[in-house]
């Protein structure tokens, strides 16, 4: 593949990852949000695949496949299960009233992206290459994921926010270096999966105890 094609594909996939994150902020339907997250998983897998292709590393390709399975398949499925039981209830399936409204959220996302670009300068400067130049995008996704955590009131959106952060970190990881050791990678993936499962179980318990999954209900423990 030519270098330009590589750069364009890289930028395209990276842009898609960021776009999905921003769209998560925009849309309110939880089901759509989960779909967007799955789309981001695909984009991320594609990003890794592009890298694998460029470096001709079969190891990376396997990892790309793994990422695709986990992030576009397994995790969205878990999320859908968390949401699925909700459908039977009477609770709304939309992010009705986020802590920060959508317009302000998008503005904040823009600012966070700018911040990510600014703060990533040393990373890019250390080894300028098309891959590292896309690192700010990963950083921005992490920050946006954190922002989703802070501003979205539904349990499922919380889960998505957490996973967005994770996607961002994965993106940064692959864009900077080719992986951080297989055992660690697997450990990280396992941890993320388990954390998500724990949260899914807790979502169920929350529904049992509170009747819905509105995180605003979680105000009993305070000082």
């Amino acid at each position: 593949m030519s270098d330009t094609a590589y750069v364009q594909l890289l930028n395209l996939t990276a842009g898609a990852v960021l776009l999905c994150a921003v769209l998560v902020l925009w849309r309110r339907e939880l089901a759509v949000i989960i779909r967007l997250f799955a789309a981001q998983g695909v984009a991320l897998a594609a990003l890794i695949a592009v890298l694998a292709w460029h470096e001709g590393s079969p190891e990376l390709a396997v990892l790309a496949a793994g990422v695709a399975v986990l992030r576009a398949g397994v995790l969205p499925a878990v999320l859908r299960r968390a949401l699925g039981t909700a459908r039977e209830g009477t609770e709304p399936v939309r992010e009705v009233r986020p802590v920060v409204n959508v317009a302000a959220s998008l503005l904040a996302a823009a600012l966070l992206t700018l911040l990510a670009f600014a703060v990533s300068r040393p990373i890019v400067e250390l080894a300028p290459s098309p891959a590292t130049q896309a690192v700010p995008i990963g950083m921005a996704v992490v920050l946006i994921g954190f922002f989703v955590l802070v501003t979205r009131r539904r349990a499922v959106s919380h889960l998505v926010g957490f996973l967005l952060m994770d996607n961002g970190i994965t993106a940064v990881g692959f864009l900077t270096t080719a992986g951080i050791g297989l055992i660690v990678e697997v450990g990280v993936a396992l941890d993320v999966l388990l954390a998500l499962l724990v949260l899914q179980v807790l979502t169920g318990r929350m529904r049992e105890a509170f009747g819905n999954t509105d995180l605003d209900e979680l105000r009993e423990l305070h000082d």
Partner: peptide, 12 residues
């Protein structure tokens, strides 16, 4: 309720 709340906050 309190335990679930605490666990959720803890994990998140």
């Amino acid at each position: 309720r309190a335990a679930v709340e605490a666990a959720w906050k803890y994990v998140v």
